[in-house]
């Protein structure tokens, strides 16, 4: 697309979206990521429609069957259809990822903005708490929080959000610290902007883009952490349809040759995370207004 055409499109209402789509198309890798994530979302929404069997009703006559036409991903020891459960599990795993990222993003951004903008004391207080949170290995902290609060969907989301929060806070704080020194912020002060408006209108929109990129990466890791916690019995409980739970249920059968019970949910995790990561790599370019 020529420069003139770019400028032209950008001036029209909705041009931003169309342009983003245009750039997305020209970047194959990002497009692949977007397609994967979109597909997982469609699967999550349509699971009851497209799944051939219910998620929590087993067939005792068909246990531990290898993949076949009737059961594309095989069945497990209770006669659950793995294919159907992999589809259903997308619902829980995406909910956890989106929920945890949304909470971590908003709370982290709030703390980061306060730390970077308000003053020395809030900065020290907030950032030392963030240091405490990140002193623990992520998974250990999440384990501890879920173990303390009791395993449940809400607590799982909360734990993962808490683990991710310092990343957003640090990222935004450092962006705010550098953007606040730029000349257009001084100019905003000169024309009479109140302090809070400088932060909201002039600093934040110019600082927030890296957090979106981070979010897509974190969404992938959130699924991994959720699956990990559910796998060790903290989080989603057996026999609910969740990828980590499913791997947990199949773990004893790997040695005896029933690989499909663990393989397909594992592959679902890997593919979903890959999708999020591919998007994250391409997002930075899309969000930078100077490259539109």
């Amino acid at each position: 697309m020529s420069v003139a055409a770019v400028a032209d499109v950008a001036t029209q209402a909705g041009g931003r979206v169309r342009l983003a789509w245009g750039r997305l198309r020209s970047n194959r890798v990002t497009l692949a990521g977007a397609v994967i994530v979109a597909l997982v979302m469609v699967v999550a929404i349509l699971a009851p429609v497209i799944a051939p069997y219910p998620a929590l009703v087993g067939n005792p006559a068909a246990v531990l069957q290898p993949p076949s036409l009737a059961h594309p991903f095989g069945t497990d020891q209770t006669g659950f259809d793995i294919f159907s459960r992999v589809l259903y599990a997308a619902r829980l795993d995406l909910t956890i990822a989106v929920g945890a990222v949304a909470i971590a993003f908003s709370a982290g951004a709030l703390f980061g903005a306060l730390a970077g903008y308000v003053g020395r004391l809030p900065d020290e207080l907030i950032m030392r708490v963030m240091d405490m949170l990140s002193a623990f290995p992520d998974f250990v902290l999440a384990m501890g929080v879920v173990a303390a609060l009791g395993p449940s969907l809400i607590n799982l989301i909360f734990a993962i959000a808490l683990v991710n929060l310092p990343i957003y806070a640090r990222l935004l704080r450092s962006r705010v610290l550098s953007v606040r020194e730029l000349q257009y912020v001084t100019a905003a002060r000169a024309i009479g902007n109140p302090r809070w408006r400088i932060l909201l209108v002039h600093i934040l929109p110019n600082s927030i883009a890296p957090l979106f990129v981070q979010s897509t990466l974190q969404a992938g890791y959130a699924i991994l952490t959720a699956a990990g916690l559910s796998f060790i019995g903290l989080g989603i409980k057996v026999p609910d349809a969740e990828w980590g739970v499913m791997i947990n249920m199949g773990i004893r059968y790997i040695v005896s040759g029933q690989w499909w019970i663990t393989f397909f949910p594992g592959a679902a995790i890997a593919i979903t995370i890959m999708g999020f990561n591919l998007i994250g790599d391409g997002l930075q370019d899309l969000l930078d207004p100077r490259r539109r």
Binding site: Q183, Y184, T186, A187, A190, G192, P205, N206, R290
Partner: peptide, 18 residues
Amino acid sequence: RLRAQIVFQDPSESLNPR
């Protein structure tokens, strides 16, 4: 500040890019 204003040196840095 309504009555006294300032124009900065580098116009690409003194305008909000967004």
